[in-house]
């Protein structure tokens, strides 16, 4: 039968000679980059395709889903404010040359939130909180024109389409890894989406400035909201890479550059806001 012995097997045959940290770095970098690239391609494709959805279809979709939420107030003062905002919007849309069939509907909401937003179907929502911090009509027109520019470029539906496509695709990957993996992929996937969001904001700012220039002949007072927001923001804010909106300072700077490039024909005049647009007007009246 022969001799029996146990010889010592040399080390390192059954374990791949890769340094764990190198393996980790290569994988992490590679996977993150591919997720980002994948999301960018998918988002661009979805954003491109979704522009073919007719605006009228978008409107009818929203009138069924969102309209009850935007029911106009019955308060006469609120209605007066709403009419004022709508007429301002109409004035702006005449210089914005919106495509045929696209109209902007402004909704006034009696809330303290300092914000305005554009949503699907050309609906723009303005909160009382925003009106209260606006020093004049020009500042308000800038914010309104910005939201209308979103509608003009169809940003709401593009963002919705992108979000939907990317969420769907990333959730298909969810079954592969576990919780930590899923969160990592999700965070990497959000980065390009945030960048898309920021570029939409910049695009809307640019068109809003153009419209303001055409409507008033100057862009004085346009930076009011950003100056207010910059003063309100805590010192430790998110890095730009992780934010949905561009940095306030950048937006103010762009407005200044625009103002320098388009010097007004005569000394700029700021239109005051009517008294009834401020919330203290309401309290005076009710007393």
């Amino acid at each position: 039968m022969g001799a029996y012995e146990n010889r010592t097997v040399p080390e390192g045959i059954n374990v791949s000679p890769v340094h764990p940290l190198k393996d980790f770095a290569v994988l992490l970098f590679g996977v993150s980059l591919s997720v980002i690239a994948f999301v960018i391609v998918l988002a661009l494709l979805a954003g491109y395709l979704v522009r073919y959805v007719p605006f009228s279809y978008e409107q009818s979709l929203v009138s069924r889903a969102v309209a009850p939420w935007l029911e106009p107030s019955t308060d006469p003062l609120d209605q007066q404010r709403q009419r004022y905002l709508q007429s301002l919007a109409d004035r702006l849309s005449s210089v914005m040359n919106l495509p045929d069939g696209m109209q902007v509907t402004v909704h006034y909401v009696q809330k303290d939130t300092v914000n305005a937003m554009a949503t699907l179907g050309g609906h723009v929502v303005v909160f009382q909180g925003l009106l209260d911090v606006m020093p004049n009509e020009n500042a308000l027109a800038m914010v309104l024109a910005h939201e209308m520019a979103h509608v003009r470029y169809r940003h709401p539906i593009v963002a919705t389409g992108r979000g939907f496509a990317v969420t769907l695709a990333l959730s298909a990957l969810a079954g592969i890894g576990d919780g930590v993996m899923e969160r990592w992929v999700g965070q990497m996937g959000i980065l390009p989406m945030l960048s898309f969001s920021r570029s939409q904001e910049t695009e809307a700012d640019a068109l809003a400035l153009e419209s303001l220039q055409q409507s008033y002949g100057h862009v004085e007072g346009a930076a009011a909201l950003f100056e207010y927001a910059a003063a309100e923001t805590p010192v430790l804010s998110l890095p730009t890479l992780l934010a949905t909106h561009p940095d306030h300072e950048d937006r103010i700077r762009r407005i200044q550059v625009f103002a320098q490039e388009h010097p007004p024909a005569m000394a700029p005049q700021l239109q005051p806001l009517p008294d009834y647009m401020k919330s203290k007007a309401k309290s005076n009246e009710s007393q």
């Binding site: 980790f24 994988l27 996977v31 592969i176 890894g177």
Partner: peptide, 11 residues
């Protein structure tokens, strides 16, 4: 190791 392995699982 677990994290590296799940990453590897994608590739």
């Amino acid at each position: 190791k677990h994290f590296v392995a799940t990453l590897r699982n994608l590739v």
